[in-house]
């Protein structure tokens, strides 16, 4: 039996250990692409509306579907740890993945930063190098692995949890404010991940709406004709009451 989406019992704050349920409660995407092909809107693809977007917006969004794979900012030696770190931060444990690493590399190479630098922090670009070096140092010192990327997923998650709680110190970590370093990295990772139309499919976001606009503001309905309601993974045929006797 599928879950009732009007209930909030899948939300981490309401669950033991603030842990979400295993992703198997989610339906596999049936239309379009989502990261790891899971999501709450299996029959919705925001790209179906791409022909209604203005040219400037379509150009910017479509470019994210074809991000260059060659990295310009990060060095070859950093890539494995960078990839593992970004995967853990937004739980991309399988294909298809939003190309977070490539999107961040492009931004940093172009110098498109957020417009501020904490007085007790280096430039954001240097922060990234320090964080990646620091992750490898922790993997070696505490877990006996050559790099962060060489650790098991559980170990990687444990290290990132310590970073998120500003519990890391020593070596590279002493050259910056760890709490702010986490914020610098996550801001950029989230801005990349949730800029991608695959992530919009996962969360059921209507996407760009110019020049068309939105019309269904509620309360009768909040669904435009091109949007789809949330769904869980029950099979509508097998779950039909008349088949259940």
């Amino acid at each position: 039996m599928g879950r009732d989406l009007s209930k909030p019992d899948h939300l981490p704050n309401l669950r033991p250990g603030r842990e979400p349920p295993h992703s198997s409660w989610l339906p596999l995407q049936r239309r379009g692409i989502t990261p790891q092909m899971i999501g709450r809107y299996p029959d919705y693809d925001v790209l179906d509306s791409a022909d209604t977007w203005d040219d400037a917006t379509a150009k910017v969004v479509n470019a994210r579907l074809h991000v260059p794979t060659e990295l310009r900012f990060f060095s070859v030696g950093e890539v494995a740890t960078l990839r593992a770190f970004c995967n853990v931060c937004v739980a991309q444990d399988g294909e298809p993945r939003v190309p977070v690493v490539e999107m961040i590399d492009e931004r940093l190479a172009a110098g498109r930063l957020d417009g501020y630098q904490y007085a007790d922090m280096p430039d954001d670009r240097d922060t990234w190098h320090v964080v990646l070096a620091g992750l490898d140092e922790v993997a070696e010192a505490r877990y006996g692995k050559a790099t962060f990327a060489a650790c098991e997923l559980e170990t990687q998650e444990a290290i990132v949890a310590q970073l998120a709680d500003a519990q890391l110190s020593g070596g590279s970590w002493d050259s910056l404010n760890v709490k702010r370093a986490w914020s610098v990295c996550m801001r950029m990772i989230l801005a990349a991940f949730y800029a991608h139309p695959w992530a919009w499919n996962e969360i059921g976001f209507g996407g760009p709406a110019y020049p068309r606009g939105y019309m269904r503001l509620g309360p009768i309905s909040t669904l435009e004709p091109f949007e789809r309601p949330g769904a869980t993974d029950e099979d509508p045929v097998r779950e039909a009451p008349e088949l259940k006797g």
Binding site: R18, E19, V90, A91, T222
Partner: peptide, 17 residues
């Protein structure tokens, strides 16, 4: 609110609510 990784994705999927 302190969420990242799988917990963050779960809240994000709930955006429309």
């Amino acid at each position: 609110d302190g969420h990242w990784g799988r917990a963050l994705r779960e809240y994000m999927r709930d955006y429309n609510h």
